[in-house]
């Protein structure tokens, strides 16, 4: 496994852990004691806006720690290899697939509103589809690096 694959794997694990921890935190702190908050749009807005900087900050921190570990354990390994046409092609293909997944999730979210479901269902489906799309993006990048593109 080369450095790029390791980096994707770290990013994947990091994003899954952050998302699961954040979902657990929001549920136990706000939703468990007061289920009515699910229908408060301000709650969803705040949850989204707080999640974004936290996720970015933790990802940056994880990558810094990863770079330090790689530097200590594998001194000969290039920490920041050049990004070339193959990387761009792999990224393009993975983004294309994740966009399709997000579009399907968006349609499902709108479909839940059209079927008269509670608005919180739409938010949950929307957040979940974004998370799944991001995870699938990383998985496909890993797949293309391993199997070829």
């Amino acid at each position: 496994m080369d450095i790029k694959e390791k980096r994707i794997l770290v990013s994947l694990v990091g994003s899954v852990v952050v998302m699961l921890f954040y979902a657990w935190y929001i549920y136990s702190r706000y939703i468990a004691g007061n289920p009515d908050i699910l229908n408060d749009f301000r709650f969803w807005g705040r949850s989204f806006l707080i999640l974004i900087p936290i996720a970015i900050g933790i990802q940056i921190l994880i990558h810094i720690i990863f770079a330090i570990i790689i530097h200590i354990l594998w001194k000969g390994e290039d920490i920041d290899p050049i990004e070339d046409e193959r990387d761009k092609l792999i990224e393009l293909k993975a983004i294309k697939i994740s966009h399709y997944i997000f579009i399907v999730g968006f349609m499902l979210a709108m479909g839940s509103l059209a079927l008269g479901m509670q608005p919180w269902v739409m938010f949950v489906v929307l957040i979940s589809s974004g998370f799944v799309a991001s995870t699938v993006n990383e998985l496909f990048r890993l797949y293309y690096y391993r199997k070829g593109v």
Partner: peptide
């Protein structure tokens, strides 16, 4: 070879192994 062609070593490995067809 990677340095002379301006790509990463991983890309050269992938080309050699037939896992990537270069531009």
């Amino acid at each position: 070879l990677a340095e002379k062609t301006g790509v990463s070593r991983q890309t050269i490995v992938a080309i050699e192994n037939g896992k990537y067809f270069p531009s």
